[in-house]
Amino acid sequence: MAAAANLCLMLGLAAAPEVIGSAATLSWTHSIEKTLWTEHWLATPDGLVLDAASVQGSGAGMEPPDGSILKDGAWHWRPTVPPQSELTLGNAGVTAPWRLCPDGGSCRDLVAPAGEPIKLFPCP
């Protein structure tokens, strides 16, 4: 059995990776619809696994898939995408920041130097 992976975060090209735990929730406000989108990610030896997602509405390319359940004002579903080697988050500086909440830890806004990527990836 392979060792469990951690989730690492890099805020910009020159930043050192920071281990934040084995799972976290990533959320943001959709730039057009102004509604909250949330994803729960797990770090595994196979990559980052998108375990759950929700969105507080629909429109502008954010329609919940068939089988979604409306609960507490948001559509919830379990995505069916393969494990990802990393997530690269845009950082144009013109929208609200991404928000990361490690399981069992404190939430924080993700801020990197203007125009530099924010990356999440599995690490040992």
Rank of each mutant, 00 (worst) to 15 (best):
E63A: 15
E18V: 14
M1V: 12
A52C: 03
E63N: 14
N91I: 12
P124I: 06
G90M: 04
P79L: 11
P65H: 05
I20M: 09
W75I: 09
G73W: 10
M62F: 14
E33R: 08
P79F: 06
P117E: 11
T35A: 06
T88F: 04
G93A: 06
R78Q: 14
G61H: 06
T95E: 07
P122M: 04
F121G: 03
Q84F: 05
D109E: 15
A53C: 07
E39I: 12
H30S: 09
A60K: 11
T25A: 05
D51M: 14
S22M: 10
G115C: 06
V19R: 06
S106L: 12
L89V: 04
T95G: 01
F121C: 05
P45Y: 02
S68K: 01
P65G: 06
A114R: 12
Q84R: 10
G73I: 10
T38D: 05
S31I: 08
P45E: 08
P79Q: 05
M1L: 13
G12V: 12
V19I: 12
G61E: 13
L48F: 02
G67Q: 10
T88C: 08
Q56E: 15
A114S: 14
P64T: 04
D103V: 14
C107W: 02
R99A: 02
G57I: 11
H40C: 08
S68A: 15
L70T: 03
V81C: 05
K71W: 09
A74Y: 04
S58D: 12
L48H: 00
C8Y: 03
E116P: 14
M62N: 12
G12R: 02
C123G: 05
V111S: 03
A96G: 05
C123K: 00
P124E: 14
T95V: 13
A43H: 03
G104P: 10
T44K: 00
D72A: 15
W41R: 01
T29P: 04
Q84M: 15
E33Q: 13
H40M: 11
A15I: 11
W77S: 02
E63W: 09
M10L: 12
L50F: 07
A92P: 14
W98S: 01
L70W: 13
V49T: 08
P117K: 00
A43E: 06
E39D: 12
D66V: 11
A112R: 01
L11P: 05
P97C: 05
D51P: 07
R99I: 13
G47S: 03
G61L: 13
C101G: 00
L26M: 05
T29A: 00
N91P: 13
S31E: 09
D66A: 15
A60E: 11
A60G: 04
S27R: 03
P82F: 05
S68R: 01
L87F: 01
Q84H: 03
T35M: 15
T29V: 15
T25F: 03
A16N: 14
A16V: 11
M10S: 15
S54H: 02
T29Q: 07
G47A: 08
G93I: 10
A96V: 09
A43F: 08
P102L: 09
R78F: 07
I32F: 10
L9G: 00
T88P: 07
C101H: 03
